[in-house]
Write a protein that binds this DNA or RNA. Structure first.
Lengths: 134, 134
DNA sequence: ACTAAACAGGACATAAATAGTCTTTTAGTC
DNA sequence: GACTAAAAGACTATTTATGTCCTGTTTAGT
């Protein structure tokens, strides 16, 4: 339960690798993919998601590739994970959309809120700087 | 991400309902299922899993049904969830089976261990007694 | 013993999510 | 214009989730 998907794992591997590279070096997707052992086409999708929210910056054409969108210490693990997996919600009713029709009488609800807060708290405190060993 | 499945949700609903019933009363699966609004056949599977690890006790035949295997304050939410969802492992490499071939160089690893510990810690502290409002 | 009640267990069915692949388009370089 | 590399969308395959159904086994009551 609560397992990270492959996508999430690949996302972390990819962007952590990027963080280990010199900041001004534009990295090819193909290089990243082979370095972290992830199918290139799949990693492409992941990096597109990163690009949309500014986690990475992309350059097209000859000499193109990817660089980090911000310094490694300003990118948290939470951002990386949620970029591809969506917001961390241990239980649907945590989303608060009235999905939990029994939310009034539901004593479990606050527990999930607590779990969500704790997990997000942990992941917010970890940045790419640490993960890349910088 | 990290969402509880229906099975997990049903499991909680079912056993919490059982905890609200008088301790000596043998409850019919059909009654529990309709009370918590879960397909009976599906709930049957869930309660079979509960039964195997002693979370509930089952009685077959006429007059049969289910009762809690232990007093509500001795059954934790963690046990209930892990009974049907398996051990909480945010990342495969946490299982320690060498699945994470890069575990040596992996700085992410300790983060998942921390997440796992925190989540399990929270869920261990919640018992059926509280959840059932007793 | 017979019957009906109730859980146990396995096989099966369907739908959704995951994990990709492939092709075309767009943007940029030489 | 030719080439390079990411963007974007359509498509496919596999796995997991979510159940259903049927048969068996246990037990109570007559």
């Amino acid at each position: 339960m609560m397992e990270l998907t492959r996508k999430g794992e690949y996302a972390i591997r990819g962007i952590v690798f990027l963080a280990t590279q010199p900041a001004d070096q534009i990295c090819l997707l193909s290089d990243i993919a082979s370095a972290v052992d992830v199918p290139q086409t799949f990693l492409a999708k992941i990096f597109q998601q990163f690009s949309k929210i500014g986690l990475v910056r992309s350059y097209r054409g000859t000499g193109g590739g990817f660089v980090l969108g911000r310094p490694p210490e300003k990118i948290t693990l939470l951002e990386v994970v949620e970029a591809v997996e969506g917001t961390i919600t241990p239980n649907r009713c945590v989303t608060g959309e009235g999905v939990c029709d029994r939310s009034g009488a539901c004593n479990v609800h606050p527990v999930w809120v607590s779990v969500q807060d704790q997990v997000r708290g942990i992941l917010t405190k970890v940045t790419l700087k640490e993960l890349a060993g910088l």
